[in-house]
Design a protein around this nucleic acid. Structure first.
Lengths: 215, 215
DNA sequence: TGCTCTCTCCACCGATCGGTGGATGGCGGG
DNA sequence: CCCGCCATCCACCGATCGGTGGAGAGAGCA
């Protein structure tokens, strides 16, 4: 098995040196380049085709998020392992959305960093606890029983594109009843039309996106 | 620092024994009980008040998911670390939604299991790579640029509860233009009214729930 | 026994929306 | 150079929706 080719991106020379020497001294890794900002990172990534890019997010000029986005746009296959100081800053989720493969804190134990880089090279997802927690919160959030069962049914039908009349037919009630349910829903959600009600329901996880079933 | 009190839940005696002896021999852990199904797990959890529950999902009778739900309903504070054989089965996300603190594979290295249990005791989230990947897929899904920038703006305003006239004012265009944009949106999303368009946009991740800002 | 909540239903009106069938100019790729 | 996509705008009409102001019946709780 050949070594994992690494590109290290961080605006602090100290950090680059630290990471560089740490990975260089570990078996199975080869540091092929270093960059101090996003633009340089993208340039080097095209040129050197590393397997894994260790990427800081906060950098002058093109930041890490922009760089990840750009790499994805260019179709560069390198896995990006975000390596940053704070796990709870607001850039975490955008970075994942942009296509980062993993997200670790810089002060993770050496062991974990090495394991993370290896996992990233295989395309596995590595998350530090704080990031994992953030992601889980995104999914958890027990639905507070704000809407009654019936109201939720009505809202689902409306979200599916039914008119009041159609929803009424499907529920075997009259249109008038559907309208009262909707008015109650608007009041409870603090909105004043069906479109906003649907949006608010998604925000409050009363409705959830269909999970596209994999394999 | 006192030991972490563990409750082990699995329908296979072999697995219980294995885990039990593994944790018993590790410093900082104390196995206070074992259960072979969900009902017994809930009973023992109320009685023994463990810090962490190592929980299998597939069990006869009350399964792990039901047990987690029940524990949450009863307000039992124990952290639940799901410990199962397959990382890609369909019970993963429901378990997290029900309130599991972490999710590890049984064949994880001993090291990882111990670390996972310690992390869970502190309330940190531990995820095995396959589960992390699943969660990330839930968030990733790069939006296929189906809607034009302008159309997306219109849809966002509509989702926020604006009428066509209001959206027009905010975009400094006429109501007629907003209407054409919406008609285009309906065609592209395969729907025929604004509420369904909003729902479909959430399903396709063109719109995403606001992340409730923490601390 | 009250009280509250949910679910059901009715009538009526103005406001808004969806749909049709256009038109114009700009920008970019083949 | 032409085609397609995008963004902008127009008029007109019927359908639908939101809002008001009710009411009755059943469930659950104190």
């Amino acid at each position: 098995m050949t070594s994992i080719r690494l590109l290290i991106v961080d605006d602090h020379p100290v950090v680059r040196d630290g990471l560089s020497s740490m990975f260089a001294s570990a078996p199975g890794f080869e540091v092929v380049g270093e960059a101090a900002d996003g633009a340089a990172a993208v340039r080097l990534a095209r040129e050197l085709r590393p397997d894994v890019i260790l990427m800081d997010l906060r950098m002058p000029g093109m930041d890490g998020l922009a760089a990840i986005t750009e790499l994805a746009r260019l179709g560069i296959g390198a896995r990006v392992l975000v390596l940053t100081t704070y796990g709870n800053d607001s850039h975490v989720l955008p970075a994942i959305e942009a296509g980062a493969t993993g997200y670790l804190l810089k002060d993770s134990p050496r062991e974990e960093l090495l394991r993370g880089a290896r996992a990233a090279a295989k395309g596995e997802s590595v998350l530090s606890p704080s990031v994992a927690a953030k992601l889980m919160n995104r999914v958890k959030t027990p639905a507070p029983q704000l809407l009654s069962r019936r109201e939720l049914e009505v809202l689902e039908l409306v979200a599916a594109g039914n008119t009041n009349r159609e929803a009424a037919a499907r529920l075997f009630i009259t249109e008038a009843t559907v309208k009262s349910h909707l008015l109650n829903i608007y009041a409870k959600l603090g909105v004043s039309d069906r479109a906003a009600a649907v949006a608010e329901a998604f925000n409050r996880r009363l409705l959830t996106p269909e999970t596209p079933e994999p394999s």
